[in-house]
Amino acid sequence: MITFPNAKINLGLNVVEKRPDGYHNLETIFYPIRLQDALEVNRLEDSDLPYKFHTTGTLIEGAPEDNLVIKAYNLLKTENYELLPVDIHLFKHIPTGAGLGGGSSDAAFMIKLLNEKFKLGLSEEKMEAYAARLGADCAFFIKDKPVFATGIGNVFEPIELSLKGYYLVLVKPNISVATRDAYESVKPQHPEVSLKEIAKQPVETWKDCMKNDFEYSVFQKYPEIAAIKDKLYDLGAVYASMSGSGSAVYGLFKEAVENVDEKFGECFCRQRELE
């Protein structure tokens, strides 16, 4: 059985306040995009091992047991669901360290796949609860629809928002940004206008009012990321932003950009018409 975990972009991101537990409350909009990994799970016959894990595509660092796909499997296993031994193959295409939620998506889709394969009977709400235990934004990928996210990025409110017909140009330089570093120069404050209200305005107006608070500190440390955003506007984007804490940057265009791969050198670059 195979499934295709997809990425997301952040439309705006406001760091609202620091919490007593050291984390930060924020508000952002998660929007799914069809940049995908591939995740396949098959029965593992005649094996004493609970699973075998293979990865191809982009190199994934770390031990297998630290991968969110395996953490999702082990979570359901410890909850006493009857999971037979499985052979897991993850083809990694979504860039890591990019602010695109690729690892979180892999975990959520693993929960959905195991639920279907082994007929566990889990509701979407139950799967969301399990996914939330693996990461703040993991639960978003269970329903995989646009949401206004608050809390630490784990409280979701569905919103009516469609970017259908726009072209997305996504650029990921050969840089990974640690979320901790991105918070260094951020001064939490409540926005004068909520992103939920800004998103109701025409996309062409977002440039002046929809901000990502992480850009200030990240652009100071990595001016080449700031340069990508500027270039997207030079190419005609109606809105451009870094996604999450970076390092991926995207632009929304009314028309497809010709020869876009050639314009960003050795960066990972993809163009998609949004659905």
Rank of each mutant, 00 (worst) to 15 (best):
K92G: 01
G22C: 05
D21W: 12
Y216I: 10
E116C: 00
N259M: 05
K221L: 11
G101D: 12
A107L: 04
D261M: 07
K52D: 00
K221I: 07
L161T: 05
K254T: 08
D66G: 12
C209Y: 08
P85F: 15
D230K: 12
A132H: 09
D21I: 11
A108G: 03
T205Y: 13
Y73E: 00
S176M: 12
L76G: 10
K263E: 10
Y216K: 13
K77G: 02
V16A: 02
I228Y: 01
K207M: 07
A237T: 09
Y250P: 06
E61T: 14
Y73A: 04
I88N: 01
R43Y: 11
E184R: 14
S105Q: 05
L161Q: 09
F4A: 09
R270E: 13
C267Y: 09
R34G: 05
L114P: 05
D87S: 13
K119L: 11
E273R: 15
E82L: 10
G151H: 05
E128L: 12
L26Y: 11
D213E: 12
R43I: 12
E255W: 01
G135M: 02
E27D: 10
L83Y: 04
Q271F: 06
F141E: 03
L90T: 01
L100A: 10
G165R: 03
L35K: 05
F140R: 03
E40H: 12
M110E: 04
L195A: 06
V41T: 02
E224H: 04
N212D: 12
F214V: 14
G62L: 04
K200F: 06
F109A: 02
N80E: 14
K211R: 14
L122K: 08
P158S: 00
V69K: 01
R133A: 10
S47H: 14
Y166V: 06
K211C: 07
S123W: 06
L232A: 08
Q201G: 07
A63N: 14
